[in-house]
Every structure is written in C-alpha cells, then in structure tokens.
Design a binder for these strands. Structure first.
Lengths: 152, 152
DNA sequence: TTGGCAAATAGGAGCAGCTACTATATAGTA
DNA sequence: TACTATATAGTAGCTGCTCCTATTTGCCAA
C-alpha cells in the first residue's frame, strides 16, 4: 500500500482558501492572516499534524505567532467544519470493552459521543490489502457533525 | 434515536470475566483483583468512561487503588484486545483539513495513523435517523489493529 | 503448602499539551 | 478615518498521562 497523494496545487489552494474566507464571514468570524495561514498549512499537508507541528510551520510566515493562537484557531476551524480532529486523538482517552457492536456519532461542538447501531455497518468489508498487511482488531464507522442540541 | 442497551447481566459478566482470566494467562499476565475490577467496571458501563471515571468506580471496591494503576491496566487491556480506546489518545490532537476522501488505520501499539483509500467506503449510506437528527459533516471508516512493523 | 521471584501496585513527582487570563492589536463597519 | 468587537501574544495554570521507587502479590516449582 502506498500513501495516498494529497499534494495540493496552487489553483486548489486558492479556491479552498476562498471557500474558507466566505465560510468564516458567514460564521461571523474575522478573517485574519493567522487563520488563513493555519488553514493553508493544514491543506498543504497529508500528515495529520499536531498543533505544535503546524505552529512550527506557520511560524516561518508569522514569526511572532503563539502556539496558543494556533490551538485556538484549530478549535475554531473544527467548530465551523473547516478542519477535523482525526478520530482517536487528543483529550482524555475513552474506553470501551469493545464487545457490543455499535457506532459513534461525535458532535464537533460539544464533543458528546452518541452511540447508535446500524446493522449494515457491522458487516463492512475490509479491503484485502489491509487485512494482508495489518492485524485488524476493530473496525467502525465514525460520523462527525453537529448534534441536535448544538444546532440551534 | 434511543441509546442502545448495554446492561449486562450477572451470567454474562461471569462468562466474560472467565474469558478475560484465561486470556490474561495466555498472554502471560497476572490476574490481579485490580485488573478484574477495572475490566468488570468497563463491561458494566455503556458510557465510554475515561480512566478518571473508572478510577472513581473501582475505588469504591479498592479504596487504595491508584489512578496510575487504572491507567496502566487500561493500556494493558487494550494491548491484549480486552478493551479499546474509542476516542482520544492523551497525546496531542492531530488535525486534518477533511477535504480529501480517505480512511485511517491506527496501530494500537505505535499509534501510527496510516491513510488508505478504499472507494466503497466513500459511499457509505448514513441511516436516515442520523441525518434527520444531526447535521453530518464527515463520515469515515476507522480501522484499528496492529501494523506490520509492530507485529513481529 | 511453602518459598522465591518476576510482575504488579501505590504513591508521588514530572511532563506535555491544552486552556484560561490580560493587555494589546487589528479586522470590519459606519 | 475612527470606533468597537473580536483576535492575538505572552504567560500562567490545569489536566491527564507517564515515569520512578519501594513495597506487595500472583504464580510457579519444590
């Protein structure tokens, strides 16, 4: 298996940035150069960077930016759906005995995790090249969005 | 949508505990009352508890247990597949612009996140009761297991 | 059953990463 | 251009996990 390609060309970077700017305005957020820089660095990489890594990159453009700003920006971006926290990273670990079949919906605003069970999701077929290379212990469908309580 | 039911009866608790005990022995792990208590508390709940929450519960049985033991136990359980981390990692958050279609495989040992792209996973149908109640922004298939480098 | 030892535990210290706070600066608007 | 609400930089503090050490305990062998 090879890594998927995610190199972004100038044209796509520009169009996504334009989408981002209008999306910010619509959400009542100010469009600051720091926000754009963080967003663009995130677009340019394929490696699920941490706030720290992004901070290092953005710092080359804005030497005075603080790590806190990067963190706050990332939280803001994930609240408007312009960025996502890769599942299973950050915050306190949450455990599960893993016995019962169920899937998770996670609200990106309140971070609530809501269980649901949709039978077809239990029988998802894993591609052979994954099974050949890795020992699969768990597979699940993971849905993110905004829950009923937050969407008002 | 109602929460799925996960209340466990005494008989099931007992049989799962027996499985756990033999599973520990096979893995060369000592069967300590603390381990059993943590595992059973995890079986009894439906709420994806954090280490802290489990610690509070187990403490009612073993007042002298330490949070560190609960944490270590959970790591151990997840290494033998008796528990799973459903959310969070305790490490730094990892971000993704969420634009390109891809799925993640996460190694539970080295925590590496490996991207892959399996076209059928892009077209997963979300059940209507999810779409009706929540605003879905992202859906993905998430696979966990042991990667080629760690499985030696 | 008992003794010995490797493994596990309790408790505390330490560390990483996120979050809250305050003064200053800046984007958006009239 | 001036005003105001929002964002930023810098720092301090908090949370949650991990490391360390001394002590205890499960498990095997005699």
């Amino acid at each position: 298996m090879k890594n998927i390609e995610n190199e972004i060309d100038g044209k796509e970077l520009k169009s996504k940035t334009e989408w981002f700017v209008t999306h910010c305005r619509r959400a009542g957020l100010k469009v600051t150069p720091q926000r754009i820089a963080v967003y663009q660095e995130l677009l340019k990489t394929n490696e699920h960077p941490s706030a720290e890594i992004l901070y290092q990159k953005v710092k080359q453009i804005f030497p005075s930016i603080s790590l806190d700003t990067v963190n706050r920006t990332l939280v803001t971006l994930s609240e408007i759906g312009a960025a996502f926290v890769v599942e299973g990273s950050g915050d306190a670990k949450r455990y599960d005995a893993g016995s019962d079949k169920h899937q998770h919906f996670k609200c990106i605003k309140c971070r609530r995790i809501i269980d649901f069970h949709h039978k077809p999701f239990d029988d998802i077929k894993i591609p052979a090249y994954i099974n050949d290379k890795f020992k699969v212990l768990r597979k699940t469908v993971y849905i993110e969005g905004i829950c009923d309580l937050c969407d008002k």
